[in-house]
């Protein structure tokens, strides 16, 4: 896919910088291909190996050790830090991203194994400065406090609604059941999902008497991003 600077978190300059740094590392080798039972299996490592990932419709390359997870590649090599590492063992969902449209724990996927797949992160569902409706609903229903689990929940909600625009409460509980929040913002999430599915009146969360206008619902430097 073509690079599209305007929509991405990493500029072309940053991108080239990443490549330039890694090209100078001498220990980079590609996979060795072994034939096992008539099948060709690529074997990576133990040193760094060039990998290419397609994230939010854009190609990213870096030279990484095979042990690097998709999560760490996104965060440390491509500066896509929306997905968080919390439990680091596929328990909490703070690292949720989509792999070919299905939510996965990025801490439990190796970067080398995510090659050739379409990866979507929380940064990718924002179009320029305009929030996705799911993100708007999270803001309007105050479905975040400290905000650390929020990107994971946004992605879990986004995936759920993409595949099932009218989930039952049980389906919502299942769809968001792979994530944890410590501040206890589930009630706001219930309101957000309710708003997305047109069940506003049933969620119980009081609606704003003074609605924040959309002008302020933009990610800005307020708050230091």
């Amino acid at each position: 896919m073509p690079d599209d600077e305007s929509k991405q978190g990493v500029s072309r300059r940053e991108f080239l910088k990443i490549s330039a740094i890694t090209v100078s590392v001498p220990a980079v080798i590609g996979p060795t291909v072994l034939e096992v039972g008539g099948e060709e299996i690529p074997v990576y490592g133990p040193g760094k190996t060039p990998i290419t990932l397609t994230v939010n419709g854009r190609r990213y390359t870096a030279d990484l050790e095979p042990r690097v997870t998709l999560l760490d590649a996104l965060r440390d090599s491509f500066d896509l830090t929306g997905a968080k590492r919390v439990c680091d063992r596929a328990e909490c969902g703070a690292c949720t991203v989509l792999l070919d449209d299905r939510p996965v724990y990025a801490c439990a996927v190796l970067a080398i194994d995510a090659q050739g797949r379409n990866i979507s992160t929380v940064e990718g569902i924002t179009s320029g400065d305009a929030l996705h409706p799911v993100q708007h609903a999270f803001v309007a229903n105050d479905a975040q406090q400290c905000g650390f689990c929020t990107p994971g929940f946004v992605m879990a909600s986004y995936a759920l609604l993409k595949h099932n625009p009218n989930p039952s409460p049980e389906q919502v509980a299942k769809g968001l059941g792979g994530n944890y929040c410590r501040c206890g913002t589930y009630y706001g999430m219930r309101g957000a999902i309710g708003q997305m599915t047109g069940q506003r009146s049933t969620v119980g969360l009081p609606q704003s008497e003074v609605l924040t206008d959309r002008e302020t619902d933009r990610p800005t430097d307020q708050g230091g991003a």
């Binding site: 896509l80 830090t81 929306g82 997905a83 992160t121 929380v122 940064e123 924002t126 929030l131 993100q135 999270f138 803001v139 309007a140 105050d142 975040q144 905000g147 929020t150 990107p151 946004v154 009081p206 609606q207 704003s208 008497e209 003074v210 924040t212 302020t216 619902d217 933009r218 990610p219 800005t220 307020q222 708050g223 230091g224 991003a225």
Partner: peptide, 17 residues
Amino acid sequence: TRQSRLDGPVKVSGRAK
């Protein structure tokens, strides 16, 4: 009044650092 938090947008978009 009830106001949405100002840092909500950076948090839901993963841009909060």
